[in-house]
């Protein structure tokens, strides 16, 4: 079980609990605004862009090559950027805060 907090663009804080699947799926299930997951979670659309709270990067690890490539020309991307379809919900993620970019 992991508690994950999304902070939307309009500063709404949504904390949800999950046990498995991707963070994108968890966000979509809970209707988190700004996480669309149009491609269904295969890192093809970049509509699940989040920035990991700077204090929590140890919980998420670093972005994979394909995530970095997909975000390379995105003006809103920074070193904390992730495509959350590539983040799995695990115990290690408990307490993480993710800022939704769109």
């Amino acid at each position: 079980m992991a508690k994950i907090t999304f902070v939307t663009k309009d500063n709404q804080e949504i904390t949800v609990e999950g046990t498995s699947g991707s963070v994108m799926e968890l966000a979509v299930k809970n209707n988190v605004k700004g996480i669309d997951g149009d491609c269904g979670g295969v890192c093809s659309c970049a509509t699940c862009h989040v920035q990991v709270d700077a204090a929590h990067t140890d919980k998420t690890g670093v972005a994979s090559e394909i995530e970095q490539d997909m975000l390379e020309l995105d003006d809103d991307a920074n070193e904390y950027s992730r495509l959350c379809c590539q983040l799995q919900v695990t115990e290690a993620m408990d307490g993480v805060v993710l800022n939704v970019v769109k």
Binding site: C43, D69, M70, E72
Partner: peptide
């Protein structure tokens, strides 16, 4: 297998 080519 080349997302970079795709975004460029």
């Amino acid at each position: 297998n080349n997302a970079k080519a795709y975004v460029i």
